[in-house]
């Protein structure tokens, strides 16, 4: 696969390390009476759709940036590649 890095242009996917569902960005914060269930859901209930999926890729053999790649899991078409910060901003704006 080729991933269009927002700063570095087209890069081969072998330069990246895959992590998974971009929902991992939204880790709950522990407070005084945190329910373990929130952490359970965060850790174990990941989205795994057949189709459009926002996922985390780390450009390990490159600039070390964590990116959010929007990929169609049925045909590997890459619809969007963003820096994590930009993704979080637009996610929160929604």
């Amino acid at each position: 696969m080729i991933i269009q890095h927002p700063d570095l242009g087209p890069r081969d996917s072998s330069e990246f390390v895959y992590k998974g569902d971009a929902e991992l960005l939204f880790r709950p914060k522990r407070t005084e009476n945190t329910d373990q269930k929130i952490f359970h859901d965060y850790l174990y209930l990941r989205n795994n759709p057949a189709g459009k999926h926002c996922e985390l890729w780390y450009h390990e053999y490159g600039d070390r940036s964590w990116l959010v790649v929007t990929r169609d899991t049925t045909n590997h078409e890459i619809l969007k590649v963003e820096h994590v910060e930009d993704y979080i901003k637009s996610y929160k704006a929604k």
Binding site: Y58, S65, W66, V84
Partner: peptide
């Protein structure tokens, strides 16, 4: 660590 910094 990069994940904890950049993503979290």
């Amino acid at each position: 660590l990069e994940f904890c910094k950049q993503c979290l």
